[in-house]
Design a binder for these strands. Structure first.
Ligand SMILES: [Mn+2]
Ligand SMILES: [Mn+2]
Ligand SMILES: [Zn+2]
Ligand SMILES: [Zn+2]
Lengths: 145, 145
DNA sequence: TTAATAATGAGAATGGCTATCATTATACAT
DNA sequence: ATGTATAATGATAGCCATTCTCATTATTAA
């Protein structure tokens, strides 16, 4: 629910002495509606065309620094932004190699535990201290397939 | 073995009417020694400091276009290059969030099959046509941990 | 209301990467 | 071997996503 998301972000920002301005609220709403990570250009052309790119990028950086956003990169190295895991929950991605749209997916408890255990096993066997994992499924989305 | 790698790349390039020049051979040798994907800057400063960056980038593009290299991106969106899967075999990555070094790992048949099956299952349940998967383990490498 | 501080917007600057083009090296036919 | 066609190289300029600067505006709190 968007109202609850706003409340959680607002509280988090207040704790970090960062203001939840109108522009930042519009931005969070746009990302909430997206259903997956989106690039600055995508957000700018689709939802936030009245916000200057310099302001949009600064908003992204500010919210990332405080942990509200996470930054990834698409196949061309362009930055993509989504809500942090503590807001969205742990999940994975379907990446369409044709239209480049990324969709959030939840594995469910059984599959998620299996992935976590596999990751932990292989990390341990290499003397690696695991803090997380990423599983992306590549292919064609329902529209492109 | 490096000699065999050179032979396979040479054959592949010949079939695509691309020459396996001395510079390209040095580049393949450097990547072979790396043990994981590396950025153009990393390769330039460590192994190939006498090769101009413009030539290095062109080499990367040419070898990627013909399928000898695959391009990914690190946490800052900087391009990383590694040998294609048909040369290196399917594998996954340990990504150190401290020093940013990426290490190739092989899951072994059992774990690999499990990951592939999980990916296929979740793809199917979303009407997604899977063509591949990526599993990265994040954390601290043996040196940084 | 005022003073202090934070957010915004316009534009310049940065940096990784690519395009251009003249020069040099390689392959192949003669 | 020699010449010719074509590909590779290197210096440089250009591109574009992103960040920085700084003057202006909005928000907070005394
Ligand atoms: Mn996501
Ligand atoms: Mn690899
Ligand atoms: Zn698609
Ligand atoms: Zn490390």
């Amino acid at each position: 629910m968007l109202t609850e998301l706003h409340a959680r972000v607002k509280k988090h920002l207040r704790e970090n002495d960062v203001r939840y301005s109108t522009g930042r609220q519009k931005f969070i709403a746009a990302l909430h509606a997206a259903g997956g990570p989106r690039s600055a250009t995508h957000l700018h052309t689709s939802e936030l065309d009245d916000v200057p790119l310099s302001s949009l990028y600064r908003t992204l950086t500010v919210l990332e620094n405080v942990g509200v956003l996470e930054r990834t990169h698409d196949g061309d190295g362009v930055a993509m932004f989504e809500l942090g895991e503590w807001l969205l929950g742990h999940h994975h991605h379907l990446i369409c190699t044709s239209c480049d749209i990324v969709t959030d997916i939840d594995l469910g408890n059984d599959l998620e535990n299996a992935v976590a255990e596999i990751s932990a096993t292989v990390a341990a066997s290499h003397g690696f201290t695991m803090t997380g994992h990423t599983l992306d499924v590549l292919g064609l989305c329902e529209d492109c397939g």
